[in-house]
Structures are given as structure tokens and as C-alpha cells.
């Protein structure tokens, strides 16, 4: 069993991030993702960390001393791991997307109940364009492009076992990303390659509306949406946005949509504070906070209710950040580097 470095608890970071714990995944391949999930061991559910490198995915459980112990590893020898796909409300199961540049497979990782040995099950294969784990133990994926696209919801049993499948009506446009709607469990959003936001009814599979959004920023990606007072508030990122002299580089945008009329207005542009540069590289949105890794190697955090950047985390130990995720088990921020270092901050 590998036990990680001692954590540091007293370091204060710029803004409102406080370092709680850190560890290094000693894998030799490139670190590609990190996530926090609930995992059940000996009839108790624990908040665990999942790390993914190109050829191995590891589950780390917390020890009393804020150290982390590696308890399970799954190995991938044929196709490299691209991302972790957490599925909320399912314990003892994590999904991963595998592929080279694009996703070719989605696999479920679990342990057999008898000897606790690691197992992996192939769930989907093909030209997978987007995948997202949803509340109520659901996983949505889109396979194919344009008219040959299949959008499918898979529902897991509570123990990760038997599953049910349902098709959603495809939009005849290639889907870039999916986003859940907070406060409306039966609604799902997707962004497409032609800058449309599509809205589905997950219960019936109906495609309810297509909303064309401002063409100022191409290839916008939806991260999360909120339903309030008959309107949809959608958080988009703009990986392809060019820097402008007036606003700097817009990293996230909060857009309000009237689903009835398909009209939309941008209400908040999350730009970098003065002195910071870079474009959106990858990011995560949870509740009212949005975090992004920038091309400069810095992490920036915005409070969407306050409407401004609340924390900037420069590269640590002379190494750029490459990953940022909000924990699914508490209010922590997970920040990762390519060499396997994972830092856990309290926000």
C-alpha cells in the first residue's frame, strides 16, 4: 500500500483558497483528470479521490491524518484514459472515457463484492462526442455527428449494477457538451458546433427547443444551468475567445435564456483581473462558483453571484496547473499538475 506525502495545512493561498492537503500520484504516465466521489467500504461511505493518468486510474481513501492511501487501481493497456466521468448518486462505481484525441469508449470501473478485486465493464464504444454523469444515477452520451447522431441516457441501479437505456431525440447538429439544469432534474441542455443550445425533456426524450446564441464566441461550451422564475441561466466557457482590449479574455459567460421564446441575453462576462493573461483551457462549475485553468498555467475562480473573480492561484512549485475540479463530496477545489501532484483547497 502506498501512503502519500504529509499534508500541509497552514499555507494560505491568494484570495479565498486555503490548502488543506496534497499528495502525489507516483504514476509514470501523464496525469489527465481528478475527481472526488463517495465510495463505500465496510458498509461506510467515504469521500474518496479518483486520479486518472493515461494508463491507470486510482482510488485514494482518506486516513485520519489527512493523508491519502491508494486502495484500488485499474489499468488500461490498449486505449489511453481521457477523462473521469463521475455519476452522482451511484456508490462504488466511476466511469471513464478512453480514446486518443476523441472519445472511443466509456467504461465503468467497479470492484467485485467478494474479493474487492478491480473490474471494468465496457458501456459504450464508437465516435463519442460528449458524455456527462447526471443526478439520479444517469449517464448521457452522444455518439456520431450531424444526422447520424445517437443521444442516449443510461440509468444505473444504486449499486452500479443493472441498467436501463433510453434515447433522446438528436438535434441534427453535432453536440459539443451537455449540462444539467439545477432545480429541474428532467431537463438537460447541450451546446452544439453551430452555437445552438438545445433543451431536452429527459423523461420523454423530446427535443424541446433550439436557442441560437450570440456568434461573438465560437464553440461555446455549456457547463451548468439554473432554472429560476421561468428563465434559464446558463454558464458557458469560451475556449476560442480572443482577448479584447476592453474586457481582456472572457473565460466564462452567464447567459439568460427565455425557453419559451428562444431569446437570450448575456448578463455576466467573467474576465481576468488586471495583470492576468490567458485563455480558458479547462474548467468546472458547481453551484455559484466557476473555476478555470488558463493557458498561462494559473487557476482563477469566479463567484457568479458576486460577479467577479474571487481567487487567483498561480502555478505551485514552478509547475503550471493542468486540472481543476470542484469536489463532489464537499466544498473543496481539486487542483492537479501533469506530473501527478494533486492539491486540495478549501474554498
Amino acid at each position: 500500500t502506498e501512503i502519500t506525502d504529509l499534508p500541509a495545512r497552514d499555507s494560505l493561498n491568494p484570495g479565498s483558497l486555503q490548502l488543506v492537503s496534497k499528495f502525489k500520484n507516483p504514476s509514470s504516465s501523464c496525469s489527465v483528470d481528478v475527481s472526488a466521489v463517495w465510495w463505500e467500504r465496510a458498509a461506510a461511505k467515504e469521500p474518496c479521490i479518483i486520479t486518472a493518468c493515461e494508463d491507470v486510474v486510482s482510488l485514494w481513501k482518506p486516513l485520519d491524518t489527512l493523508q491519502w492511501e491508494k486502495v484500488h487501481t485499474w489499468h488500461f493497456t490498449e486505449v489511453p484514459v481521457l477523462q473521469i466521468v463521475p455519476v452522482p448518486d451511484v456508490y462504488n462505481l466511476i466511469c471513464v472515457a478512453l480514446g486518443n484525441l476523441e472519445i472511443r469508449e466509456i467504461r465503468a470501473l467497479l470492484c467485485s463484492s467478494g474479493d474487492e478485486s478491480e473490474k471494468q465493464v465496457l458501456l459504450k464504444s464508437g465516435n463519442i462526442k460528449a458524455v456527462l454523469g447526471l443526478t439520479k444515477r444517469r449517464l448521457v452520451s452522444s455518439i456520431g455527428t450531424f444526422c447520424n447522431q445517437q443521444v442516449q441516457i443510461m440509468t444505473f441501479a444504486e449499486d452500479g449494477g443493472s441498467k436501463d437505456e433510453q434515447l433522446l431525440m438528436p438535434p441534427d447538429e453535432t453536440i459539443l457538451a451537455f449540462a444539467e439544469v439545477q432545480g429541474m432534474q428532467d431537463a438537460l441542455l447541450g451546446t452544439t458546433t453551430v452555437n445552438n443550445i438545445v433543451i431536452w425533456n429527459l423523461k420523454t426524450g423530446q427535443l424541446l427547443k433550439k436557442v441560437h446564441i450570440d456568434d461573438s464566441y465560437q464553440a461555446s461550451v455549456c457547463h451548468r444551468a439554473y432554472s429560476e422564475m421561468g428563465l434559464l441561466f446558463v454558464v458557458l466557457s469560451h475556449p476560442c475567445a480572443k482577448e479584447s482590449q476592453v474586457f481582456g479574455s472572457p473565460v466564462f459567460q452567464l447567459l439568460v435564456i427565455n425557453p419559451k421564446t428562444a431569446q437570450s441575453v448575456g448578463i455576466l462576462l467573467c474576465c481576468l483581473p488586471p495583470g492576468q493573461a490567458g485563455r480558458f483551457l479547462e474548467g468546472d462549475v458547481k453551484d455559484h462558483v466557476a473555476a478555470a485553468v488558463l493557458t498561462s498555467g494559473t487557476i482563477a475562480v469566479w463567484d457568479l453571484l458576486l460577479g467577479h473573480c474571487t481567487a487567483v492561484l498561480p502555478p505551485a512549485s514552478d509547475q503550471s496547473w493542468s486540472l481543476v475540479k470542484w469536489s463532489g463530496t464537499d466544498s473543496h477545489l481539486l487542483a492537479g499538475q501533469k506530473d501527478g501532484n494533486v492539491f486540495i483547497y478549501r474554498y
Binding site: L208, K209, K260
Partner: peptide
């Protein structure tokens, strides 16, 4: 937010769109 730009708002938009959209 200039909600006038967005047209008439319905609190039951999800049910209304579901009843109008093709099955």
C-alpha cells in the same frame, strides 16, 4: 437583465414546451 428583450416569460415553460414538441 433587460427581461423585455426576452419576450413573455412563462413559469410553466417546461410543461408547455413538452406539450407542444413532437413526441
Amino acid at each position: 437583465c433587460r427581461t423585455a428583450d426576452l419576450g413573455p416569460i412563462s413559469l410553466n415553460w417546461f410543461e408547455e414546451l413538452s406539450s407542444e414538441a413532437p413526441p
